[in-house]
Design a protein around this nucleic acid. Structure first.
Lengths: 232, 232
DNA sequence: CCTGTAACATGAAATATTTCACCTTTTAGG
DNA sequence: CCTAAAAGGTGAAATATTTCATGTTACAGG
């Protein structure tokens, strides 16, 4: 366990540790933390770069991050947006050595970079632990896949509704964060042009489904939006 | 090990067993097979039904299957198409108890239904084995995700090119199977109307990129199609 | 405080896609 | 062998979406 009063998050409060020590003994878990680096990322900073080596397992204590894929042409696609606490190294860990996606802080973030060999060591000695961690990571996949399905099946209306509901229910729910998702980012998430996002949001507002409070988008009519997300 | 001369695939030839016994001892693996049921599915048969209970881990010895998602409206979306030998229970295993997708045979298939508790037992005694199996299952996800990214980013041209290349390179490569993917199925995979598939395929043929041999689609110009898949 | 940049916004033209109507060919079943 | 159903195919009209042109607003740096 890292003993350092400078750290915002003391290891004793760490939710990964709390989760882990339900399964493995503290004496197994704590040594892993000695090689672990805790970092702060400001809003907008890149945490992992697409194409870079995946050397660490990431645990997001607090904050919001986006997984995005950049094309040669320069356009971006946001695969998913996740809020901590959550294991976010999964996609890069379980796939290959190279990061398939970039990871960018959308809010200030506290992240622990766990040494992957230490983690594998712990995992190999404790099979139940692997299964638990995989379950964690799969959660993320499941949401992504449902977003993808909405993408494949729906028109822009429905896709934007899906994305708004996802952000509301799973990322910014009960949060006092400003809803700092730009129209451009919403467009990259819903896979359409930013003009289309702007028009659609305006229409949703005129129809009383959502409301703008400064930067924040407030969902007024969850039910109708769910309808749109399913049918349109 | 199942001793039954009726079986098309004897356990000694099983590629899951060959793969597994690289990691775990035969004496660990073989007892699992005693509860395992080997089944044949004819082209078009449903192997797993969306919404049903996920009670088994599936290993596809031979054949081609599609993972598809059905909407209330009746329209289908094909998430991926894969060929054996491959562990195909992953998506349903690692997510929840309920099948998120239906699994349908697109060619005659040989499948083993492995008891999930037996598998978990084996996995828990052999952590390395879990990691190896997950790596297997992740392969499938990675391909799906790249298909999704193509879906999100490209116009129909590019999406159809992506789907054709995927089928050619990863499903029907070097195979003497008839390329029995109907226009309707291609449309469900590329997420567009079947008319659009028909038109696009005709255009690709006129441009000399592909050729029809009876039911089979033959890719003539892999390079240009790759270009289209990336840029269009 | 000024200024440039990025984000937000709107409408019209251009393009892409779906839907529909219709036809032909292939396939499966009686 | 006949027939109905399914799959393949085409083109035009309707619709959805993007692109472009333009302008406004918000915000950070000098």
């Amino acid at each position: 366990m890292i003993e350092n009063s400078q750290l915002l998050y003391q290891c004793k409060d760490c939710s990964l540790r709390q989760l882990s020590t339900l399964i493995v003994h503290e004496d197994e878990f704590d040594p892993m933390c000695r090689n672990t680096v805790q970092l702060h990322f400001s809003k907008g900073e890149t945490i992992l770069k697409q194409g870079g080596r995946a050397t660490n397992l990431l645990f997001l204590h607090r904050g919001v991050v986006k997984f995005s894929y950049r094309y040669d042409t320069g356009s971006n696609y946001i695969m998913t947006i996740i809020t901590g606490p959550k294991l976010v190294g999964g996609a890069n860990l379980f796939f290959r050595d190279i990061n398939i996606f970039s990871l960018t802080a959308m809010e200030d973030c506290e992240v622990c970079m766990v040494d992957i060999e230490d983690f594998k060591g712990l995992a190999l000695r404790n099979p139940t632990y692997v299964l638990a961690m995989i379950e964690q990571a799969m959660d993320m996949f499941q949401h992504s896949i449902f977003n993808f399905i909405s993408l494949a099946h729906n028109h822009v209306n429905g896709r934007i509704a899906t994305v708004l509901l996802y952000l509301w229910d799973h990322v910014y729910k009960d949060s006092e964060y400003k809803f700092t998702v730009s129209r451009k980012e919403l467009a990259e998430f819903a896979a359409c042009s930013h003009e289309n996002v702007i028009n659609t949001l305006s229409r949703f507002r005129r129809e009383g489904l959502i409301e703008f409070e400064g930067k924040k988008i407030v969902i007024l009519n969850h039910e109708t939006l769910t309808e749109i997300s399913k049918k349109g």
